[in-house]
Simulated scan of single mutants.
Amino acid sequence: MEIDVRGPRFGAALTTVVLAVALITGSGWLLAVQAAFFAVGAAAGVQNSPYGWVFRTLVRPRIGPAPATEDAAPPRFAQTVGLVFSAVGVIGYLAGPQWLGTAATACALAAAFLNAAFAYCLGCEMYLLLKRVTTA
């Protein structure tokens, strides 16, 4: 399935804001909400995640058709990676140790920021690397 290339970047921008607030406040509960959003994106596809819905229904109609599309599999894998980091962060914040929550949230924030600001998706690159290794 092909998706608008702007959708995952929009989602990454929203994710960056949520993760920054979670990191600043140390809120395990806010991070848990983001983890749930990642879980939906990983299970149903990034286009069906809450941020994907916002992009599809509120943003895309105002900015016009997609200038380019991309395979949905790499962003979906990236959602899984985000889910893992945010789940580890939730465990750290809510059960301890606190530094684990901070470190995992910071890693997820760095990856989301790279995608939002520079259109460089670490999870997507991991997917492509794993695909090359497994098919070689």
Rank of each mutant, 00 (worst) to 15 (best):
M1G: 10
V5T: 15
P8R: 07
R9H: 05
F10D: 06
V17N: 05
A20G: 08
A20Y: 08
V21C: 08
A22K: 09
L23E: 00
T25C: 07
G26Y: 11
G28W: 00
L31N: 06
A35I: 09
F37R: 02
G41M: 07
A44D: 07
G45D: 10
Q47I: 04
Y51G: 04
Y51H: 06
L58H: 10
V59I: 14
P61N: 03
R62S: 12
R62T: 08
G64A: 07
P65W: 05
A66E: 11
A68P: 09
T69I: 11
A72H: 14
A72S: 15
P75T: 08
V81Q: 08
L83E: 10
V84E: 08
F85N: 06
V88F: 07
G89R: 11
V90Q: 09
V90P: 03
G92F: 00
Y93D: 12
A95H: 11
G96L: 10
P97K: 02
Q98P: 00
Q98W: 13
L100S: 09
T102W: 11
A103H: 07
C107D: 01
C107T: 14
L109F: 15
A110G: 07
A111F: 14
A112I: 11
N115Y: 03
A116M: 05
A117G: 12
G123F: 03
L129I: 08
K131P: 00
R132N: 10
T135I: 10
T135R: 15
